[in-house]
Amino acid sequence: MPDVTKTAAPADEAVDTPSVVAAAAPQQEKARSLWGDAWHDLRRNPYFIVSSVLIFFLLLIAALPGLFTSASPTAGDLVHHYVGKPELGKIGSEGWLGYDIQGRSVYARLIHGTRASIIVGVAVTAIVTVVGSIMGMISGYFGGVIDAVLSRITDIFFGIPFLLGAMVVLQSFTDRTILVVVFALAFLGWTQITRVMRGAVITVKQADYVQAAKALGAGTTRILFRHILPNAMAPVIVVATIALGGYISAEATLSYLGLGLASPTVSWGVDISAGVQAIRTSQHILLYPSIMVSITVLAFIMLGEAVRNALDPKLR
């Protein structure tokens, strides 16, 4: 080589822009975390936009039902007791979706029933995610006998049919409040998250960066929470989001079977149950709460799918 012979050129390399980042705008693109990238993708995903708008409205309704209706969900006026066609009022008025058998506004019950469903869905998911993740992390990270025992316990719970198990649990309570339903569903639901978390932890545990942290002398807590958890979380978030919809429909199912929530608690499941009794004459009582359950479940499943696509670029 004539000129620049035998010169190590690290300094030159540093001046160059890394190949992944477009050279045109190195300053603006300083830090792009993987979460940031996922968010970048999500914002452009129509499924995400539709589902998050839906979920935003559902949460708003659940938090502030008064914004949407002034009618009471429990006060019935038998004047409206009604077995024929709904008398359609103005959209959003008390009677625009008709009245139920006891003369209560279907619309008001729909609005007020949202809270029960959302609380059940969110609370069960939260408990299940925390419990399941902890169990999965312990099982996956420590392995050996701990893993063997925890995995067998998980298997036993996994073997119990979800709804049947929940029915049995709920049977043993006389007073079935929202709290009890949440407990029953969470009691049987954590295994799914445990399995996902365990698998993710086992994969991440073998990654070189975990070995590197160990080689630096990092303690177990640091390794688990700084290195393993952030990298094992993605699949758990996806599964939990999709499961949330499932818990809402499970609540409705149990209520329909008379084992979940019961009147006077207002919930979609309770209304579906009541609606079935009048299915021949006034289908609207059944129709509207069913639509709400379907939309909610769909919204969460769509959100979960969108998040999955954003977090796992391989599926793209």
Partner: peptide, 29 residues
């Protein structure tokens, strides 16, 4: 005694910044 790993794509935690990855050594020591 420290180590340099084979695969530069898997030996750095993808969810930490370069500053955190190197700085972690000082958190530990």
């Amino acid at each position: 005694i420290q180590m340099v790993f084979q695969d530069p794509y898997t030996s750095l935690n993808p969810r930490m910044t370069v500053g955190d990855i190197i700085g972690e050594t000082f958190d530990i020591h």
